[in-house]
C-alpha cells in the first residue's frame, strides 16, 4: 500500500515537474523579448554555449567520422561494396549520429554547466537580489540561455556533420586508399538534402529545446545547496540524455 502511494507521489511529482518546466520555458521565451538588453546577453551565451563547445564537437566529429569509416569499410568490403562507404557514413551522420551525438555532448558540456551556474546563483541569493532590484531573473537569466541553447545546438550539428565527413574522407582517401572522386559522388548521388539533412537539423532544434528545458529547470527550481547543485547537474546530464534519445525515436517515428 505504502509502496503504491510512493509511486503515486513520484508520478505526481514528475508531472508537476514537467508543468513547472513548461511554465519556465514558456515564460523565459516570452519574457526574453521584453528586455532589449537580452540581445547582448544572448550573444554572450551563444559564445559560451556555441564557440566554447567547438573544440569538443570538432574532436568528436573527426574521430567518429574516422572510426565509423573504418568499421563500415570492413563490413562493406566483404560485400564488394567498399565504394559505398561515404554514402553509409553520410546517411548515418546526417540522419542520426550528427544530431544525437552533438546533443549528448551538448548536454554534458553546456546543459550541466548551465544547471550549475543557475544553482550557484540561487545558492548565493542572486535571483532574490535581482528580484529585489526589480529585475526579473526569468527574463534576464533564463530567457537568453534558453534562446541561445535552441539556436546553438543546430549550428553545432551543422558543424559536426561537415567535420565528420572530412574525417571520413581523410580515412577513406588517405588511409584506406579509396578513390575520393567516387567517395564524394556516391555521397552526392545517394543523399537528399531535404529529406536526409534538414530533418536531422530539425531534430537538433527540438533537442536544443529539450536540453535547455531540463537544465534550466534543474538550475532554477533545484535545491539551492552545494550538494543539491552537484546532484542537479548530474540529473541534467542523465535526464537530458535520456529525453534526447526518447524524443529521437518519437521524432523519427513521426517524421517517416
Amino acid at each position: 500500500m505504502k509502496k503504491i502511494e510512493a509511486i503515486g507521489a513520484k508520478a505526481l511529482n514528475a508531472i508537476a515537474g514537467v508543468g513547472k518546466g513548461a511554465w519556465l520555458v514558456l515564460n523565459g521565451f516570452i519574457l526574453f523579448f521584453n528586455n532589449k538588453r537580452n540581445w547582448q546577453t544572448l550573444i554572450h551565451q551563444i559564445s559560451f554555449a556555441g564557440i566554447m563547445s567547438l573544440p569538443l564537437i570538432a574532436m568528436s566529429a573527426v574521430f567518429i567520422g574516422m572510426v565509423f569509416t573504418i568499421q563500415s569499410y570492413w563490413v562493406l568490403e566483404s560485400f564488394g561494396a567498399a565504394s559505398e562507404v561515404g554514402l553509409v557514413l553520410g546517411l548515418s551522420v546526417f540522419r542520426e549520429l550528427g544530431p544525437v551525438i552533438t546533443a549528448l555532448l551538448y548536454t554534458g558540456r553546456v546543459g550541466s554547466s548551465i544547471t550549475a551556474e543557475l544553482g550557484l546563483m540561487k545558492t548565493s541569493e542572486q535571483f532574490a537580489s535581482m528580484e529585489l532590484m526589480s529585475v526579473d531573473p526569468i527574463s534576464r537569466i533564463v530567457g537568453p540561455r534558453l534562446v541561445a541553447m535552441v539556436i546553438t545546438l543546430p549550428l553545432l550539428t551543422m558543424f559536426f556533420n561537415w567535420v565528420a565527413l572530412l574525417g571520413s574522407a581523410f580515412v577513406a582517401g588517405k588511409l584506406i586508399g579509396l578513390d575520393s572522386g567516387t567517395f564524394w559522388s556516391n555521397l552526392k548521388n545517394g543523399i537528399l538534402f531535404y529529406s536526409d539533412v534538414l530533418p536531422g537539423l530539425f531534430k537538433s532544434v527540438i533537442f536544443g529545446l529539450i536540453i535547455a528545458s531540463v537544465s534550466l529547470y534543474h538550475g532554477y527550481f533545484g535545491d539551492a545547496t552545494p550538494s543539491g547543485v552537484a546532484k542537479n547537474s548530474t540529473r541534467t546530464v542523465v535526464q537530458g540524455s535520456m529525453l534526447v534519445l526518447i524524443f529521437d525515436y518519437i521524432l523519427v517515428a513521426l517524421m517517416r
Partner: peptide
C-alpha cells in the same frame, strides 16, 4: 534597497 546576508554579488 536591500542588503542580503550573503551579499549576493554577481560573481
Amino acid at each position: 534597497g536591500v542588503m542580503l546576508q550573503s551579499n549576493a554579488l554577481f560573481n
